[in-house]
Design a binder for these strands. Sequence first.
RNA 1: GGCAGGGUAGCUCAGCCGGUCAGAGCGCACGACUCAUAAUCGUGAGGUCGGGAGUUCAAGUCUCCCCCCUGCUACCA
Length: 551
Amino acid sequence: MSDRILVCVAWPYANYLLHVGQVAGAVLPADVFARYQRLAGNEVVMVSGSDSHGTPITVTADREGVEPREIVDRYHAKILETWERLGIVYDLYTTTLTDNHYATTQEVFLRLLEKDLLYRKSQDQLYDPQAERFLPDRYVEGTCPICGYGEARGDQCDNCGSQLDAIDLINPKSRMTGAIPVIRQSEHYFLRLTELEAGLKDWVGKQAHWRRNVLNFTLGSLNEGLVDRAITRDISWGVPVPVEGWDDKRIYVWFDAVIGYLSATREWAGRTGDPEAWRPFWEDPATRSYYFIGKDNIVFHTIIWPAILMGYGGLDLPYDVPANQYVNMPTGEKQSKSRGTGTWMLDLLDVYEPDTIRFYLTTIFPETSDSVFAEDDLIRTNNDVLIATWGNLANRVISMVHRNFEGIVPATGELAPESEAIMAEARAAFTTVGAEYNACHFRNAVNDSMALAKAANRYLDERAPWKAVKVDRVHAAETLATALTVINALKVLLHPVLPFTTRRLHEDLGFDGTVLGHGWAFEPVPAGTHLREARPLYTKIEVEPVGAPAR
RNA sequence: GGCAGGGUAGCUCAGCCGGUCAGAGCGCACGACUCAUAAUCGUGAGGUCGGGAGUUCAAGUCUCCCCCCUGCUACCA
């Protein structure tokens, strides 16, 4: 019986290239998870898109003197290229610029308004009279009132780390124009999080399967008490507020971005030809929805988005939010788009095979703590783990079958105990490794798979078919046929992480169709099968790290 | 400052409802083998589990204090 699973992935801002941290932290875990679930026979839809609104995009556009849409188009194309080359398979990767998304966002807004979960309130805001624009705190700079640092931001002083209020800055000026900001009143719509707090607490309290940091952080925030948040802004780039007389404001990006999960699923449905196909993924309580995000985004996915959904009514709340920590540089520095530090995915893809990258990144998924990306470590992992333990295993066995059995899988009689044992281990791995994937413990899934590969290497050494074949062909035949079956099992177990090379291996082993088509199943390579000529699945990297720095 | 997560072998990380929890992989040393991308297999070297105090028969595993890293702190998302 199959499950229905919605895989939601954080929406990258379309104003930069993607770096390793974003991919290892959210996108690749989601893809591995979705691939596993599809293999396991579940009904999966995976959606995301480029977040096209927000101040950073406007600022980038201003700096280049172009329209925001041009920035979005440029980087959206680069992002799509990254997915293609890395083998990230979305059912839909869209943007927040579609008519469908605007309509969905406005529909949600109006529903909340009807239900009195939105209200208007005026607040003081800093305004740049030269740019004729309201300023977020971080776009104001001046002298820190606490330590005297001259270039403190309105929200925080980078020198002494103090949290600031932009109004308290000495000699404040706009980072956009240098003008002195003035205070102006502005009216906005606020979401009544205070109203939804009790329901959220009740719901979060039941999510015992969430990761410790996600659960504790969310409970902590709820216990401190929520504050209503403004969901509109004084900007011109964004989803229009569907209310008379609000033409000069827009729905703010954090509100429309999370709604993107819903609008993207609707858009996917429309593209499949069944516009109603999104409903089971959102309206059936048995559907499980997973949100793959970084740790900086937890509050939006465990509090605000659920609050919006609760307020809207009739839609599923997140089942799990397996937020990851960060992937840092070997120097300990963060991968940061805004600082320009980090490794761009496209640079990496220019140099290394996608499965090499996917495998290495999976081994450093920051599932429990920040992890480190290092190119020399990637090379070492490729050569000393991926190839030595796994690639070589497939290669040595297929080569032996060609050398000694004309490339035809030999038949076996009754199996020796050690052959039975390794077969049983391979069969059992489908349960254990499957459970790890299903629980989003991807590193464990890979480690368990590699343990099976090591066991297969050990089995080969013990049975030494290269020796046995000279004196007892039946013995050697049994060894090789058994090893092939274990290799075929590993092909399936590792397919979510290594989709490209396991597809090749699938062909090399003489199978038709796709790995996906065969499903999450233990399956021998039938006797009599003609294997293709042995070819290495992976290329050893002999070079020094070439370096693929950001910028 | 407050809240949350993390600080375990050279490296990357598990373990954390207290008692085979002092581990895995890589690297390193030695040995075996030679089918295979000099790959594989076996053996080994031992890290005061960030620091200090406490609870307990027993603590990386619980409590308290301190140090360091990261995120959030709601007008970056």
